[in-house]
Design a protein around this nucleic acid. Structure first.
Lengths: 187, 187
DNA sequence: CCTCCACTAAAACGAACGTTCTATTCGGTG
DNA sequence: CACCGAATAGAACGTTCGTTTTAGTGGAGG
């Protein structure tokens, strides 16, 4: 069986992407992860915040890999972003539109906490870096690539959010199509 | 002086856009609004949820007016969205990047509550309707307009979020520029 | 065999939550 | 003046929160 610590982090990420940071209790995380409160505080002496930071880092890696996979599987960044949006739509539909992006869900509640805000910021920055690099290798100039990366991540996050609220993939499909079109005007 | 009820709703919206739904306590809302707990429960017998629904409706109207103003002040929808993004960036910078969109902040925490999710969904739909109508009057076809409206709202929401987290207007400026470019390929 | 340490387990704490309750104030109407 | 409902005020309730504390387990090393 996979380690207890990993199970706790994974469960925390899953719950936080459904109900945010404040809405997710430590006791619930422990119960859902088949761990005890003692185990949680053993692995995360810093308490809820340390666990949340680990969950954010975990999710950062996870979505980063989806981005890389999408980019590796298509010939142009535009097509890659379209397939990425489709993957997100499928993922959301699979579990009834409740499992979204934990970074987004957490970010808005914790803007007052500098550590948390910084961790979420790093996640977004990491993802933008992946997109920007792919755009540069596709021939887009340095400045344009960095700027486009901002919009790519923003529209994916925004579309995921509105798709969740509407319980419909429309927003993500539109986002994918328009990203492909927009990026197409640069390469 | 403006009415107590209105002051409570406005304060609730302001606090919810900073710390979300779960993170904002009813007692804090009362204190910040210079009202008492008794007054809050007098005007909102349904408790926190009824107040939150009123706050969402309030914010829906507020951002809707910003959209209409932007569209009325520019000749093309693309330019309007660019100026709208700029307005959002100025608004965010004004108070230290903490006052974002309460609908976005609330939506992700309350996906499990059908009333709340529906209220947030209505807000997004309302805003999309405004954008779609402007696009149609600018000559964009019915289907394209509806689809573009999805992306316009998604990218504005996403860019506002990432701008808040990064404490920088970059994401919103990029969003405005790219929206203008994207919409420019349709009209 | 004993000890140490990583880990599990659960009880208990104070604080804060949303809510309910009782009292009081106040302006208008009989 | 008496009275009533709207509105204000805040104490108090039960619950849940994050955290701390204490106790117990099981396996590896001297």
């Amino acid at each position: 069986m996979t380690g207890t610590r990993e199970r706790i982090v994974c469960t925390a990420a899953r719950l936080m992407q459904r109900q945010g940071y404040e809405g997710t209790g430590i006791k619930l995380i422990a119960r859902e992860a088949n761990a005890t409160l003692g185990s949680v505080y053993h692995y995360f002496p810093g308490g809820k915040k340390e666990l949340a930071l680990a969950a954010i880092a975990y999710s950062e890696r996870e979505f980063g890999e989806l981005l890389e996979t999408s980019l590796a599987g298509e010939t142009t960044p535009g097509a890659a972003m379209e397939s990425c949006a489709r993957a997100l739509a499928d993922f959301l539909a699979k579990d009834g539109w409740i499992d979204g992006c934990p970074v987004t869900a957490t970010a808005l509640e914790t803007l007052g906490d500098d550590d948390m805000r910084a961790a979420c910021g790093r996640a977004f920055e990491h993802w933008r870096g992946i997109v920007a690099k792919a755009l540069r290798t596709a021939g887009v100039g340095e400045t344009d690539a960095a700027e486009l990366a901002h919009t790519v991540i923003a529209v994916l996050e925004g579309a995921e959010l509105t798709a969740q609220v509407a319980r419909s993939p429309e927003a993500l499909h539109a986002a994918g199509r328009h990203l492909a079109r927009l990026l197409g005007t640069y390469v």
